[in-house]
């Protein structure tokens, strides 16, 4: 036990004693925390950035995964770390706009961070299994109306885009209590949620398109609506939310962003804005992001805050209106 403590102590001392020269940032490798497990969208986005950014930053970017609690564990870790610019976070829609809007017991608020940039967005779609009879959003609405609570939708857990997507869709369809109109069935991951929908275990799923495009192209899932303002290139026959008269659904768009702990220095922010401009022009990063099914979208720190705030406010309004808050 004493050996353990000693060991932990030495390691701790080594970490905290690292020289931090604020003047010439960055003078050591930057740690980028992905708050979800390896292989997920946030992990891939983080590794993609870490592959390209060092060329312009002059220091390596090391991705570490701190998964757990829907992104809260890793996010709280970065929020509480020193604002020296060496601990950054790959923020996601789930960890930074949905969960804070939905849960009162989060260890942070959405605006507890220094926003550096938005990196990419992930357009979403709602889809049903081709084995189900629903040919359109209207068919689905009629089925829900016919037997309240019997229609089911899958999600990657409470406070994910899938979850809020289902609620928003039901709200937009005009159901008074989206909590009971259809039944929410959470799964452990986005993959499992997509699988449950594709195999017809549940009636529909709202998900980022990249996670369900294989099943759509493979003929297992039938997309009913996309949440982008314009139709999506790869799904030209699928109507947009606005076309169907539900423009509010456009708030339903996944994103990844780069953030740091509160109180990052202006110099650090300026360094990253410069670096990210170069990254945005780098074909390697652009192509990689696109091939993972996302749309590259770099925004300035101010625009990023506005973007997240807008989304958070929309979701928070919905949560308050429908009394969905989780304590």
């Amino acid at each position: 036990m004493t050996k353990m403590k000693l060991l932990a102590g030495i390691a701790l001392a080594a970490v905290t004693a690292m020289p931090v020269a604020a003047q010439d940032y960055p003078s050591q490798p930057v740690q980028l925390t992905a708050p979800y497990g390896p292989g997920g969208a946030s992990d891939l986005a983080a590794r993609n950035l870490a592959n390209v950014a060092p060329d312009y930053l002059g220091q390596p970017v090391l991705v570490t995964n701190r998964a757990g609690a829907g992104g809260a564990t890793g996010s709280a870790y970065v929020k509480n770390s020193d604002p020296d610019g060496y601990n950054l976070l790959l923020a996601r829609i789930g960890s930074h706009s949905i969960s804070p809007a939905l849960k009162s017991s989060m260890p942070y608020e959405w605006d507890d961070f220094t926003y550096l940039s938005l990196l990419e967005i992930n357009p979403a779609a709602c889809a049903t299994a081709t084995s189900k009879p629903y040919q359109s959003l209207e068919d689905l609405r009629a089925a829900i109306e016919a037997s309240p609570g019997a229609v089911t939708y899958s999600s990657a857990g409470v406070g994910t885009l899938h979850h809020l997507g289902g609620i928003m869709l039901l709200d937009e369809m005009g159901f008074e209590d989206p909590g009971t109109a259809a039944t929410h069935i959470p799964f452990q991951s986005g993959g499992a949620a997509a699988a449950a929908a594709a195999t017809g275990q549940v009636d529909f799923v709202c998900s980022n398109i990249s996670a369900i495009i294989s099943q759509i192209e493979g003929g297992q899932l039938r997309p009913l609506v996309v949440t982008t303002p314009e139709r999506v290139d790869s799904l030209p026959d699928v109507p947009t939310a606005s076309e169907l008269g539900h423009p509010a659904l456009e708030a339903l768009v996944g994103w990844s962003g780069l953030v740091g702990p509160p109180g990052l220095s202006d110099e650090t922010i300026a360094t990253w804005v410069e670096v990210l401009q170069e990254v945005a022009a780098d074909e390697r990063w652009v192509n990689q992001t696109k091939s993972l099914g996302s749309v590259p979208m770099m925004l300035s720190p101010e625009e990023t805050v506005a973007f997240v705030e807008n989304q958070y406010t929309t979701f928070r309004g919905l949560v308050e209106e429908l009394g969905l808050q989780i304590d």
Binding site: P38, G39, G40, G191, A194, A198, T199, G218
Partner: peptide
């Protein structure tokens, strides 16, 4: 089916 059954197949 294009469905990753676990974390490894997701990667």
């Amino acid at each position: 089916l294009g469905i990753p059954g676990d974390v490894i197949t997701a990667v």
